[in-house]
Design a protein around this nucleic acid. Structure first.
Lengths: 367, 367
DNA sequence: CTTAGCACTCAGGGAGTTGGAGTGCTAACA
DNA sequence: TGTTAGCACTCCAACTCCCTGAGTGCTAAG
């Protein structure tokens, strides 16, 4: 259910950590997440679930520090969790309760704010809701268009020598672009070209729309090519557009309100969102947590990112991510993320069941 | 050529400020903009263009302070300009040289980065370039769609019971939306409906697309209405969309890198960009400079905004703004802004000359 | 194995001190 | 009348010194 990057946690099982030590680690993580201050032995000892004295806690903490799960900012300060500490906590210790029914309803409502969902709006709502709920930044990388097929190509005259090319996919994506030609087309030319495009593109998987294929298409047109070049060019651009992961971002401001994060790093990060794709794209299932500069060098210093996938027809077609300070309430955030990815999976699967004509054949033809 | 908000500057002419005092004010503004530190009399006296001693400068500065153009952060510090000081400087004193030819070429290149410009891309490039050049945030509020006419309405089948409505304006804006119907349309129904829409919407000014008009349209359809309701609804939404000012923003990050501005205020500002519309919308010509909370309460505390208009067919159809710290190199920024608004005016005017069919009649019919 | 006790460390905050930049004022000068 | 040098004054900013309190590790006893 929960997959983590396993750098140094594999040994986790063999470490001689009795239940009390795990409890103490959990308490340190939770206190630190709550207050942001290094946590001292006294505070821990006073917690009801820890039945021992401060001195004992100190001994255990010293061991936890030796094992690399805790650290001290300076000699006479309390302890804070290390990355390994967070990992151990998330993976083995914390145990968030299932979301209560009323909470699920609230979330459903946030997702489906404006009635029935089209893909894009769903994604938009999901990021906004995630950012709102977690008070972090949220990102969704949607690469489902890649898995759909062209369901419609149109060329529409839109003024003197101006034509709009329109691409619609089975997944509901609509892209358009205005192109300027050297000459006006006759009705006959227009309908011939339209038919030609329809015949050669409709039903084709978006993933197959390589530039080479488009070049072939153009070449096959022969004589017409000259006149139509800008239109073919336009369609190329649109199809390239469709193949890109659409990144939807929300809650950037939360990163700025966050004490723990360096403002300048946040700025740099926001300016280079594209680099996220690399991290969001990795295929895995379940949930993955990445820490700070630990994983690739782009992420903000003191931050962590939690990523989950959503699926369609059994294939991963997008990633849902939450980016926040390392000092994050994982036990709260992770269930949200899990619920949303399940929910989105359900919704987009249902949506495609509803309108399966081109889709099914196309996707199965090109698994 | 340069219009300013004239709160207390009207008296400017009558104030007994000899040339030396103006020079000193200018020097204070420029030094302060350069260094960010309060400026002392000694620094000013050492400037070559000021031929007097520090004591004399002190006397003059005392007077400038009395008149409200300078102020002291505390007793033993140098002077910094007040808002009135900046105003006076911008309005009467500073005298930026015309942009050299090579600079103009560089700017032209930034605007037209990817070949010939469509409206949206032009606006996008302009904001990016402005933000880049000034190291501030840049915003463009484009309300030109309002002044164009619908040149094309299409309804395109895009799957089982799914139809895409497409609206194209003479200004080159393209909007689309997928709508789901209860039933599939017959070819006959579709073409009838398309014809009906074309007849009643094409050539109509976007500004005239009120909800009432759309309701009338729907009502006139009578029997068909039931079936087509979602499509009409979709067109309504698109037309509402067209009437909104499109805000294009760039360079937010620069505000964060800016020492003078409160990060939290910047965050709040970025979250509420829409409020800008009120300020950008005001009709005036030339250039307007607004300071901090001085003008409406939304702007960031220590900031200023410089706004310029661009036109099409003699009408203001958009605003170009730069938002930065009050301590801003106005003599550099204002010429950029002037040049860009002229250039955009030229480009979009040329563009519409190029394809005047629906446009001309429509706009003239509805001045 | 747990606990009380104790000596030790160190960050953070307040008080006192100093240096320097900049001012206003006055009196002399052109 | 306008300009300048000189001087006393103000006040911020930086620095040192000191103290407090939180928290630790270690040791010895239970």
């Amino acid at each position: 259910m929960l997959t983590l990057q396993n750098n140094d946690c594999q040994k986790g099982e063999r470490i001689p950590l009795n239940e009390r030590k795990l409890k103490i680690l959990a308490a340190v993580v939770e206190e630190y997440v709550r207050t942001g201050e290094p946590v001292g032995s006294k505070v821990i000892a006073n917690l009801p679930e820890i039945g021992v004295s401060a001195a004992t806690v100190r001994n255990d903490m010293a061991m936890l520090e030796q094992l690399g799960f805790l650290e001290q900012p300076h000699t006479s300060a309390g302890r804070i969790p290390t990355i390994s500490g967070y990992r151990l906590y998330i993976e083995k210790i914390m145990n968030p309760p299932a979301l209560p029914e009323e909470e699920r309803e609230r979330l459903d409502h946030m997702l489906a704010e404006q009635g029935p969902m089209t893909g894009e709006l769903l994604i938009q709502n999901a990021t906004t809701a995630l950012a709102e709920l977690t008070q972090c930044a949220a990102v969704v990388s949607d690469f489902s268009p890649k898995f759909s097929v062209i369901s419609k190509v149109e060329v529409i005259p839109a003024g003197k020598r101006v034509y709009v090319v329109l691409l619609i996919t089975s997944g509901g994506a609509i892209k358009n672009k205005a192109c300027r030609l050297e000459f006006d087309l006759t009705n006959e030319q227009l309908s011939m070209f339209s038919d030609y495009l329809a015949k050669h593109l409709e039903g084709v998987s978006v993933a197959d729309l390589s530039d080479e294929r488009m070049a072939d298409l153009a070449a096959a047109m022969g004589a017409y090519m000259m006149t139509m070049a800008p239109l073919v060019q336009g369609i190329c651009e649109l199809s390239r557009d469709l193949q890109q992961h659409a990144l939807t971002f929300s809650g950037e401001k939360n990163l700025f309100s966050c004490e723990d994060l360096d403002k300048m790093e946040v700025v740099r990060f926001i300016e280079h969102k594209e680099e996220l794709v690399r991290l969001l794209d990795d295929s895995f299932s379940g949930i993955r947590v990445m820490f700070g500069k630990d994983s690739g060098s782009f992420v903000i210093g003191n931050s962590s990112m939690i990523v989950s996938k959503y699926r369609k027809g059994g294939k991963n077609v997008g990633s849902l991510g939450v980016i926040g300070p390392m000092r994050l309430d994982y036990a709260k955030v992770i269930p949200y993320l899990e619920y949303f990815s399940e929910k989105i999976t359900d919704l987009i699967t249902a949506e495609s069941d509803d309108a399966p004509p081109a889709e099914q054949s196309g996707e199965q033809g090109k698994g």
